[in-house]
Amino acid sequence: MGERRIRVLVGKPGLDGHDRGAKTVASVLRDHGMEIVYTGLHKTPEAIAEIAVQEDVDVVGLSILSGAHMELFPRVREALGARGMEHVLLVGGGIIPKDDIAALEAAGFSKLFGPGTNTDDIANYIKAEMQKRWTKEGADA
């Protein structure tokens, strides 16, 4: 019978065409038992937020390697909020300087993963966060 599974949107906002990282992370999360919706390249923040709504995902993970993260990551967050999806666990990755990571994590992103991150660490972080949230939901019910 049905069993709850972590559903993750892996998204590529903007014009950046580098998807090796996003596909690698998507495969790793799949192998950790999650259901992954991969958006494909070149998505607008609005499209990513709309996909998150339709797919009822628990997690939105964004990947950018073009340097436009300070512009696009907050816009995705706003688009999610505008569609009532502020509850998702919002994470990201790419070539992102330390100062920018701190700024984004202060602005609503739960965690940013830079180059050299162990992929299992990403999966384990998501699992631990979702475990906390679901335990809390269970207690609230």
């Binding site: 069993e3 999360l29 799949r30 950790h32 038992g33 992954i36 919706v37 996909i51």
Partner: peptide, 12 residues
């Protein structure tokens, strides 16, 4: 996946 239960949903 029959082994992990994970899935890559790529149709959209």
């Amino acid at each position: 996946s029959p082994f992990t239960g994970g899935a890559l949903l790529g149709d959209r």
